[in-house]
Design a protein around this nucleic acid. Structure first.
Lengths: 344, 344
DNA sequence: TTGTATGCGTTATCAC
DNA sequence: GTGATAACGCATACAA
């Protein structure tokens, strides 16, 4: 396995000329640069980043914590991180925490051993355990970006979407198309996201001077099962709603399934709005109206925030809020092409 | 940032005692081990794997190439890899190639620079470019595992499922429940998987002495769009099929959407079988009968194959074939609970 | 069990 | 532009 010294010898130059060429430093004539590059090619030389990072105390790897890579929410974010990392010559350590604090801690230790240059935690529920390690990283100049609006450290960056607005928009859309009895299947109250979406729901009703009916607010979960349970409860009412805001897209799918089973047509008899815009939302029958979060962009932004802070460690943290976006599909507005399945 | 020397000093022992404790080597008294561990804790010492790997020429990182992490097929595999890696103290560099040979090459170079201890390529279409680097890795004792049954190097391990059997089982299931005119929407003929599934389809018909009708074999793709196009073609026949084998689950979804649009009920008027058992298959309406591939297990097996070969570099490569499994759901067999949506 | 010395492949700092 | 030298943090061979 060729080393820098080998290349230097073969090219008849000094070892630090090689280093300069590789790291794109100035002060090398075009001729020697050319020759060095040719020798590198010939010898199939690949710089050893272990040695480089060890010596320079700089790392081009970052750790990415996700709750569950099989949850359709995360791959979108990871893809954004990944692409931005690739563009900048960074590599990504993927860590699947399964929302298990022990696992997360174990991963954080591992990342620490690898001397990652940054950390992005998209742990979903957000309970970032392993505080000590996270704080250690932050205190030692390693940037940390978290998805969700928790803070707690002046150098921590938090990425979030305004769930209040999302809940508002979902509800307002249903109001706009004529619905007056609108149910909501909420997520777990422990989640900030769920709470804020519910507040947005109430705000939208208030703005149209519609009294909120407590019966129309039912507990659910961020899952199909939660959506099914919530929908059952709503549909069992004496005066069931004509529209439903679901906790997220999975819950919307559960709700739609229940509605169909009860012989209701979607959206004619009951309209349903989801949240997240997972891939399945566009592919479902009917395609699901939803509040999209810019997952990919959140990923690229997260990585860029890390990069900025590796370059300038004095940069402060803060909260970056992303816009959500209503995407209207067949689950609220019937179209001739209600069975049309959009590709991705 | 504490180093081994710091720990050694604080514990009043030699530096290699620390090394021995960390690497779990024998020859250390319980008392000193205890003391060392306490000091490690106190000093918040984390071993530097960069230095360790550099010195020992052994790496505990592996590269994982996937075509697209947002394609539901891959997270299942990655999760398996990830879990097995975590159990063994390995870390995973995730690389999203987008099926772009240039990107793949760039990633392989990066992985080479990081001196990964192994490589798992789940690139989907499978055209592993960057042959030179892959061969380099293999020639230098770095294990490479590929998903798909390509070979080409005596030390390469290929993981595959028997797509012939999968195609056979899908078709046989439809025959078993009474269908005689069975259409098939094939994947791109360049894919070995697509070809083998088609052969399985023919074999199943042959075994029941049913003549294959060329009209019932239509080209498609591994996508919803491909499924839609194929279904249109099949449904336009004078004598349309009563059942369809789709290229994969996405294609099945496209096909079902088209069937519904044409006023056909699924499965009563036309039954559909998919392939892969992506999460959406169980959640769709109707839930989709499919051929499941053991994604998670393939992931863990891939990682274990890498590990075995890092331990014993003389181990040869070969092909490991996984069983596929028919999962019967509502898209072929109508049930009272045809709108039941299974959670995950 | 322990200490000493050397080297892994780079980067960085000098002086030339 | 070059050459010599030290250092990053750890592993290992060797002798004690």
């Amino acid at each position: 396995m060729a080393t820098m010294t080998d290349v230097a010898k073969a090219a008849g130059v000094s070892i630090q000329t090689i280093s300069a060429v590789i790291n794109g430093k100035s002060g090398i004539s075009a001729a020697t640069r050319e020759r060095v590059l040719r020798v590198i090619e010939e010898l199939d030389y690949h710089p050893n980043m272990l040695a480089s990072s060890l010596r320079s105390q700089r790392s081009t790897t970052i750790g990415v914590l996700v709750a569950s890579i099989t949850n359709p929410f995360f791959p979108g974010v990871v893809r954004g991180i990944e692409d931005a990392a690739q563009r900048n010559g960074y590599s990504v350590f993927l860590c699947n925490t399964d929302d298990d604090p022990a696992k997360q801690n174990s991963y954080l230790r591992l990342l620490r051993r690898h001397r990652v240059g940054g950390l992005i935690a998209a742990s979903g529920t957000g309970s970032v355990d392993g505080q000590r390690i996270v704080e250690y990283l932050l205190d030692h100049g390693v940037p940390v970006v978290i998805l969700g609006n928790r803070q707690g450290h002046p150098r921590m960056v938090a990425l979030t979407v305004d769930d209040h607005i999302g809940g508002y928009d979902a509800t307002a859309h249903l109001l706009d198309i004529g619905h007056r009895r609108i149910g909501i299947i909420t997520g777990p109250p422990s989640h900030r996201e769920a709470k804020e979406r519910l507040e947005g729901y109430f705000a939208a009703l208030r703005d149209r001077s519609i009294d909120a009916d407590p019966d129309l607010v039912v507990p659910g979960a961020f899952s199909t099962a939660g959506g099914q349970a919530g929908a059952f409860q709503l549909m069992s009412l004496v005066a069931p709603p004509t529209a439903v805001v679901a906790a997220n897209d999975l819950a919307a799918i559960g709700a739609i399934a229940v509605a169909k089973r009860l012989g209701k047509r979607v959206p004619e008899d009951v309209a349903v709005v989801g949240y997240d815009d997972i891939e399945m939302a566009a592919l479902y029958d009917p395609p699901i109206t939803t509040i999209a979060q810019p997952l990919y962009e959140m990923g690229t932004t997260a990585l860029e925030a890390v990069l900025e802070r590796t370059r300038d460690p004095k940069l402060e943290g803060g909260v970056i809020t992303f816009p959500s976006r209503l995407i209207v599909r067949g689950s609220t507005v019937s179209a001739n092409t209600s069975t049309h399945v959009a590709g991705t």
